[in-house]
Design a protein around this nucleic acid. Structure first.
Lengths: 344, 344
DNA sequence: ACAGAAGTTTTACGCGCGGAAACTATTGAC
DNA sequence: GTCAATAGTTTCCGCGCGTAAAACTTCTGT
């Protein structure tokens, strides 16, 4: 029966027979009015079509219900998936998430943060581009003005909290498994990783190999940017052509590199798998949405998407409730779960 | 030197020595003021840190600079890629795009449209979920209130325009190529496609086979939702187990199904490729970002991402300039480009 | 130099809502 | 039934900016 469209709260007040300040209270918090009047209001809402003007609301409210979600590269299914997860949790909590992608570009990330400032968000969840310290200041300034929680990729000391994956857990599990069931792996990575997690994974690999008393082999392939699959493929093709793999077991820094690596193996007729009749074992990290559809399916260490997104949103809500400060920087690293498939 | 932060335009007016209405004009259109005063304003902007409050601006402006971009499923790299493309073009044109994903859920799409209404966007680019007519009304109502352009997936008569891909062009090219270089294909698809494009592709396949005087074979596999790869894989496994493929050439409705199909072939030792020594040729449509990394790389008909996004944004800008109506529904279908890779 | 055009300032109002203050009505326990 | 606490009403102001009107100033072309 939503026929008459009302233009403002005043009209809705006269139409519903309830004073405007009471309506204002109701829209800010439906529980702040008596149940009987709440029922009257909600009955009126079904008869008349009225919604508060969000611009007028946000102009006057000290704290909006907006939250910003910023990811470095949305065309990467990993970020698409985690952003989806976070977005849904924010909606559940009664907030209005806005999703932004830096598309791999630092200056776009800066623009996003500046525009986000104008939205006066209650809080921001930011997965920064991993990059040199030259741009660190922009993010630092932003975090000083807006309650921000970093996720996925950490910047030491910046933001009120960091929620991420425990790269050591990822690498320890994969190296352990590969070593236990055959040979310890060499480590395949990009020479100039776009992301600090890659550096932590290499460090974890070196540490783990040291702990096992084994000699590490790091293969750093050239390439920059976000076209990881192609970089992995080209790197693998070069290594295979030169027969330069130091071991018959390869651990890739991440699944997107591994997807390219496997494509190169297929191209060159290298049989990837575990057991007799196979030339090479390949494992990786992330459990990328397509990792189960590679040929062969990829053995990998899986992110706990659910836990990371849940913790990130929970921490953000806590941060918002405690008025923008948690009293000390909170950090939480979520461990990985090993996924065994045919590639290793 | 951006030291003093000014709280509103009034303060900036006194600080810069320029009247507030003139500043207002400047921020709405920098070219609407005399070059000399424009220079004075921009000089002042470098001394003082001031940006108009976007909520106050949008409350009073009849037409905001917001544009909404709505896609059905952002975790699908196809939509991630086209959304990225569209977003960047909108920014270039001086608008503020907001990206939303329905995450495959019809009720979420409805919520998004309702929230979008509150943002009073100048225009909206909507790639609707393909679904039954029961929800058509929500979209129709929305399009009546907000200047909207549909893309990717059409709904007859809804919105001011539709920009999409020419499914017939996709299918004609792949069928032609397969037929010319070997055998005509059977058609592999989902029985209950999430998207009307799938139906058009099947129809195009039937028509093309008819035109070639050949008998068509449509293989519809069970499954619904957006996990296309798994649906394709399961369907392929069943068909291979029963040896039920009517031809040695398979044309998949889209690349995500094909990715699953290829995974199943690999699993079962079916050698996919073109020429002697291969069991099966597989081709598809879309040129999904991962199509070049499948094993073997996928022969497919590529979307012209660039043309679709460019046309969509151009049409939207035209629509906004002409005050919300183009005087008749505009439709434009972009042809495909055949990409030959090893799978067929 | 001067009329006319174009740009600028002054003044004033409005947008739709948040929120404070003072007052009135309702509630529930004694 | 009284009274205090709670909830609602009335009235008013402020938020930051768009925008209109009128007066004023500066810029054009001749």
């Amino acid at each position: 029966m939503k026929h008459i469209k009302l233009r403002n709260m005043e009209e809705f007040a006269t139409a519903s027979g309830i004073s405007r300040p009471t309506l204002s209270k109701y829209f800010n918090d439906p529980d702040s009015v008596r149940p009987s009047t709440r029922a009257r209001i909600e009955a009126a809402l079904k008869t008349y079509d009225y919604r508060p003007n969000m611009f007028a609301v946000n102009q006057n409210r000290k704290l909006t219900k907006n939250v910003g979600i910023v990811v470095p590269y949305l065309a990467d299914p990993f970020f698409a998936e985690i952003a989806r997860n976070i977005e849904e949790r924010c909606i559940e909590a009664g907030f209005h998430p806005s999703l932004f992608s830096a598309h791999g570009k630092a200056d776009l990330e800066n623009d996003i943060l500046n525009n986000l400032r104008a939205m006066k968000p209650a809080g921001v969840l930011l997965a920064p581009l991993g990059r040199r310290s030259s741009d660190r200041k922009t993010i630092e300034d932003f975090c000083r003005d807006v309650p921000t929680i970093l996720f996925d990729s950490n910047i030491e000391g910046v933001g009120e909290a960091f929620i991420g994956s425990d790269n050591a857990s990822f690498v320890n599990q994969t190296v352990d498994y590969l070593h236990r069931t055959g040979d310890a792996p060499c480590f395949f990575e990009m020479a100039e990783p776009a992301n600090p997690n890659a550096i932590r994974r290499r460090d974890a690999y070196l540490a783990k190999m040291g702990a096992l008393g084994l000699e590490p082999h790091v293969l750093s392939v050239a390439g920059s940017g976000w076209a990881f699959e192609e970089i992995g493929r080209q790197g693998a093709l070069r290594l295979l052509a030169k027969d330069a793999l130091p071991t018959r077991t390869v651990l890739c820094s991440n699944d997107r590199l591994a997807i390219g690596f496997l494509a190169a193996c297929f191209e060159k007729g290298v049989r990837v798998g575990h057991g007799p009749g196979f030339d090479l074992r390949v494992a990786s990290h992330d459990d990328h949405p397509y990792a189960r559809f590679t040929c062969p399916p990829l053995t990998t260490a899986a992110h706990d998407y659910d836990a990371v997104s849940r913790l990130a949103v929970e921490t953000l809500l806590k941060l918002i409730q405690s008025d923008g400060s948690l009293g000390g920087r909170f950090e939480r690293l979520v461990p990985a779960r090993l996924i065994l498939r045919a590639s290793a």
